[in-house]
């Protein structure tokens, strides 16, 4: 339809329509179809935009739509990941700290054990370092003073003639001040007769030492024979109680001090007898 055809003539109205010719109808139909196509395109575009809008709204709702939101979401994800790693590291640190505490505890135990073994080794080494009876007694005193921390104590030896124990070396009091002890009598006599080490730790709190009330009696034994005892009456002021290593030292002394005392006494006696015999032989051969 051209402009002229669409223009109404002056003096005409809608109530008086003019009949259309065939060409005009075709033009109208073509124009109508174009309008229909355009309308379809608009509808499609509308649908597309509605779909896009729905999609954007959906993205907005999920928080992953706009670039800033993407970044926030990414950072949140990263943060979450780092938090997981941080918690994992914290957990690992706690495990390592626990292991360290465990190692420290073990190290202290090993160090304690080393100390104990060192003391036992030194005691054993020193006891067997000489065959001189007096030196052996001196070493026993040194061990009891320096390694156990006793202040008043004595080494008793058994005398079969009197069936009693006689002090032969001591610390804190002259040796002759320690009374003889009949085997089987009192705490000392009973412990030696029973060949059992006896500790009276309840007496550690007593204000004064009593020669009838020992703190510890350590019988000196060679197999089933008891040859004497180490009897402790008082510990040094700075030594409030017996320790585990003391008990181990007592067991070591019970055996090693006994053999050292016995061997040295035997050796000293044999040396004396040998000397006497040598003198006798010299006397015979000279005459």
């Amino acid at each position: 339809m051209n402009s002229e055809e669409q223009t109404r003539a002056p003096g005409t109205s809608d109530a008086d329509p003019q009949p259309l010719d065939e060409g005009a109808a075709e033009d109208f139909l073509r124009m109508f179809n174009r309008g229909a196509d355009f309308l379809r395109e608009v509808i499609q575009e509308n649908q597309r935009l509605r779909y896009r809008l729905a999609s954007v709204e959906s993205q907005l709702e999920s928080g992953a739509g706009a670039p800033a939101d993407d970044r926030v979401a990414f950072l949140e994800k990263e943060l979450s990941s780092w938090k997981e790693k941080y918690n994992s590291l914290l957990s690992r640190i706690e495990e390592v700290e626990e292991e360290n505490r465990d190692f420290l505890q073990r190290y202290m135990e090993v160090e304690e054990e080393n100390n104990n073994l060192a003391n036992l080794y030194i005691a054993s080494y020193q006891l067997h370092s000489t065959l001189n009876f007096d030196e052996v007694l001196q070493i026993i005193l040194e061990i009891v003073i320096n390694l156990i921390g006793a202040e008043l104590f004595a080494v008793y030896l058994y005398e079969s003639k009197s069936d009693s124990l006689q002090a032969v070396a001591s610390e804190g009091l002259d040796t002759d001040k320690f009374p003889k002890v009949k085997l089987g009598e009192g705490d000392i006599g009973q412990a030696v007769a029973g060949a059992e080490m006896a500790l009276f730790e309840d007496r550690l709190a007593l204000p004064e030492a009593d020669l009838e009330q020992p703190l510890a009696v350590i019988p000196l034994q060679i197999k089933d024979d008891t040859i004497g005892a180490i009897v402790i009456f008082r510990l040094l002021q700075q030594k409030p109680r017996f320790l585990d290593v003391d008990r181990e030292l007592f067991h070591l002394l019970a055996g090693h001090a006994a053999t050292a005392v016995f061997a040295s006494r035997l050796y000293t006696e044999s040396e004396r007898k040998l000397s006497t015999m040598q003198g006798f032989i010299d006397l015979l051969t000279k005459s």
Partner: peptide, 8 residues
């Protein structure tokens, strides 16, 4: 003076 202590 104590050999035991010296050794320790």
């Amino acid at each position: 003076d104590s050999p035991t202590m010296r050794q320790l």
